[in-house]
Structures are given as structure tokens and as C-alpha cells.
């Protein structure tokens, strides 16, 4: 393929990758954000310890995180078909991506929320804050910069996974790299896709870091 032809493949593939990544990340946060907070709140030293629930949720998260993504991709095919109506394509790839990403997101969120100074939580309790108020008015806003950093890390990780999904029926940069590059022994295609991917990761990471820095009032 000529370089022009390769470049003409980029826009659609790039859009699919962004679509899969942003869509999966958003959905992973819909599940992972509350889950992360539940893990923090119900922990032994949390504001509402619930030992059994915390252990069960922790075990589920660990279980899902320990399944390699390539295997999970095939393992959840029936579920994907049930939800999306088909198991092929970028939309379909979102199902395994979300399933594999939300436990990761939950741990990232848990980590961020744990960074909030215990003293501040205690001071809020002394002022008569309810647990819900502590979550919404203390933990969430105080952890915001760290959460934004975590979101950037999560999004880049999911982008990497989306490329893997691309190899097995999903769309995006990964699928172009495999189908046009690997299968047809066109090294240049792979190379271009890698470059585009690198640029995308840089952009995601940079916007996350920048957002976190802008949001953080601890820096003068």
C-alpha cells in the first residue's frame, strides 16, 4: 500500500479507537467510581466498615482483574451478543472492555480516595457530617486531582486493550495494524498505526495530567 492509502485508513480507525476508549472508560467509571468508593467506605478503617461486603467486593474485583483480557474477550462473547446483539465490531468490543476495566478503575478510585487525609475526614465528622456528605463533599472533591490522573492512566490502559480487541473482531487502530499490516506483511502500516497510537496515548495522558494540575489547589 502506498503511504497515501495507509493515511486514508487512519481517520476511521482513529475514530473507532477513540470511540471504544472513551465509551469504555466512561462506562467503566459509571461502575468503577461508586465501587471504588464503596471499597474505601466499607474498609476496616473506613467511615462505615462492613467487613463481609468489603471482602466480597474485593474478591470479585481481584477475580476479574486476574483474567487476562484476551481470554475475557472470548469468555464474555455470549454476554456481548446478549447485550449488543452481535459479538463483532467496535460497539461490541465495549462490553469486554468495560468488564475488564471497571475493576481496574475501582482500584484506581480506591487508591485516590484513600489519599485523602484521615484528619480531614475526622474533622468533618466532628462538624456533624453524615457519611454521604463526607463522600460527596470531602472525599470526592479532595480526591479530584488524583482521580483525574487516575482517569488518564485508566484511559490509556483501556486504549491498549481496545487495540487487542481490534485484533479479534473489534475495529480501530489495532485491527488495521493486524489486518493490513501483519496479515499482509506490510510493515509500514503497522508502523503508522503505532505512531498514531503513541500520539493518542500522549494526548490522553497529557490532558489528564494537565487537568489534574489545573484542578489541584494544593499547588500555589
Amino acid at each position: 500500500m502506498s503511504f497515501g492509502q495507509i493515511l486514508s485508513l487512519v481517520p476511521e480507525a482513529l475514530w473507532e479507537s477513540i470511540y471504544m476508549t472513551i465509551g469504555s472508560t466512561a462506562l467503566a467509571y459509571v461502575i468503577g467510581l461508586p465501587l471504588g468508593f464503596v471499597l474505601v467506605v466499607t474498609a476496616k478503617d473506613g467511615i462505615h466498615p462492613m467487613r463481609a461486603l468489603n471482602m466480597v467486593l474485593g474478591a470479585v474485583v481481584n477475580f476479574l482483574r486476574s483474567i487476562p483480557f484476551v481470554i475475557l474477550l472470548f469468555f464474555v462473547t455470549p454476554l456481548t451478543r446478549f447485550i449488543m446483539g452481535r459479538a463483532i465490531g467496535s460497539e461490541a468490543a465495549i462490553v469486554p472492555l468495560v468488564i475488564s476495566a471497571f475493576p481496574f478503575v475501582a482500584r484506581m478510585v480506591e487508591q485516590s480516595a484513600k489519599e485523602v487525609d484521615r484528619g480531614v475526614v475526622e474533622a468533618s465528622q466532628a462538624m456533624g457530617a453524615s457519611n454521604w456528605q463526607i463522600i460527596t463533599k470531602v472525599l470526592l472533591p479532595e480526591a479530584k486531582p488524583s482521580l483525574l490522573n487516575g482517569a488518564a492512566v485508566s484511559a490509556t490502559t483501556i486504549l491498549g486493550y481496545s487495540a487487542m480487541a481490534g485484533c479479534f473482531g473489534g475495529g480501530g487502530l489495532g485491527s488495521v495494524a493486524i489486518n493490513y499490516g501483519y496479515q499482509r506483511y506490510d510493515f509500514l502500516v503497522m508502523f503508522v498505526m503505532i505512531i498514531v497510537n503513541v500520539v493518542l496515548v500522549q494526548a490522553l495522558q497529557e490532558s489528564g495530567t494537565r487537568g489534574a494540575r489545573l484542578a489541584d489547589k494544593r499547588i500555589r
Binding site: 480531614v120 468533618s124 462538624m127 479532595e142 479530584k144 489547589k217
Partner: peptide, 29 residues
């Protein structure tokens, strides 16, 4: 507890809120 104010060695202010927003915090609660 709202009848008992408390201050700490480490101040324990909300770092992402301004001075005014910190003082307003218990009133928001």
C-alpha cells in the same frame, strides 16, 4: 456535634476549598 467545635494540630482544612469555602463548610453540612 454541631454544638462542639474542634480544631486540630494538623489544621485539617479542605485543601481544595478556599478559606471562605472552608468556613462555610459546616454551614453547608
Amino acid at each position: 456535634r454541631r454544638n462542639i467545635g474542634m480544631i486540630f494540630q494538623g489544621f485539617d482544612l479542605l485543601m481544595q476549598r478556599t478559606a471562605l469555602e472552608n468556613v462555610r463548610f459546616p454551614l453547608e453540612l
